[in-house]
Design a protein around this nucleic acid. Structure first.
Lengths: 207, 207
DNA sequence: ATTACTTTGTGAACAATTTCACAAGCCCCG
DNA sequence: CGGGGCTTGTGAAATTGTTCACAAAGTAAT
């Protein structure tokens, strides 16, 4: 299949969340224009995005809400439960472990790891913080799909090496460093400093 | 000045963080190729990005690290202290308020707000959670530059309306909804569900 | 069944961004 | 001071992403 742009995938995610709202409101169909309105884009963009995966709409009528939701969930791979481990039992790791949004969207947090002796053994809800040295062995049993990396900048490269060695192919990175990983590992970065600096830039360079 | 792409600004942020590392290591100069390597891009990209703002390098030699750092800080508007308020005293809000990264990069958290009676009055480090109804009045005194919105999806639109009314022109949005704001207000979204879904997509559609 | 109206799906045009490629500038060394 | 070796800065080309615009296909009403 044709390569899909990251911007497109982000929009699909967005469309899905609007569709789920719409479904809850009991509406049966929605037009590309409605979706565009909700997502701050254009109807042509919506149709182009969807057309990359097939034709799901009915001309003159729009898209059937539950069908399109289902289709998007399928495209995004949200049918299965993904197994997630969190690496780094610091503040961010703790907040993430407690975050309900994961489970709601089918992401099951099945393990927490840290390299700090002091944190190992602590219990977090139903999880116990384990030493990162056990990650590779655990991964063989538990088959983690995604690693959430929330470690201090300086030991992140070492941690990531272990994640890669454990065969995990997707990383959500909260550490403020650029990861270097093999081509078959997908990384998404969440970097608050960068977002704030983007706002700072916008405030500084307004017309 | 020519409009600068968001992708460019993100990279500038990235370059700056590498420059600061490099500076700490005591290196005096760095080439566009070195920077490209660190940031996972190309040397042409680095040079093009920088050339949008002037010519800071020396041919045959590269860029002087401290000078370029300083220049980037200036471009990104990191010279001043930005005043930040956090809206929403829930889990995410709490984690953000405690996050040291803000202060380190010159973002001073000067207030926390919530609409929930039960949370108002609680003390967080040196801050007290205040009712959001006071935001507009406080903003007049304190001159907030940036609002970090970390509220539940359903009352986010109302909250954002108050932020806009308070004259704040930059929003970092953690709520999983699309904000609608006047054109002179800049928004950056941090949406974990979206990032996870992006990874899910990548895992599902690998060749 | 015909007409009027709506909305999709999609090539083609356009715009934005990235990459290429090379002249020009600077350092170093002999 | 001249030549060799680097590295920048930047038009031009290539690529990628977005918007336009319209035929085709559907609905609804008469």
């Amino acid at each position: 299949m044709k390569r899909i742009a990251e911007s497109t995938v982000r929009r699909l995610s967005l469309y899905l969340s609007f569709l789920e709202d719409t479904e809850r409101q009991g509406l049966k169909t929605i037009s590309s224009d409605d979706l565009a309105q909700l997502g701050g884009t254009t109807s042509a963009q919506v149709r182009k995005d969807l057309s990359l995966f097939g034709s799901f709409g009915k001309r003159g009528l729009g898209y059937a809400v539950p069908e399109l939701s289902e289709k998007l969930r399928e495209i995004l791979g949200l049918g299965k439960q993904w197994k997630v481990c969190i690496i780094g039992a610091g503040k961010i790791g703790a907040a993430l472990a407690r975050y309900r949004g994961f489970a709601e969207r089918g992401f099951h947090v099945a393990g927490v790891y840290d390299s700090d002796e002091g944190k190992i053994g602590k219990r977090w809800e139903s999880l116990t913080v384990r030493p990162i040295s056990e990650l590779e062995k655990d991964a063989a049993k538990l088959d983690y799909d995604i690693a959430v990396v929330a470690t201090p900048a300086d030991n992140t490269p070492a941690v990531v090496k272990q994640v890669v060695r454990a065969g995990i192919k997707a990383i959500l990175n909260f550490a403020p460093v650029q990861l270097s990983v093999p081509a078959d590992v997908t990384v998404r970065n969440v970097n608050m400093a960068m977002e704030l600096e983007g706002l700072s830039f916008a405030l500084t360079n307004r017309d």
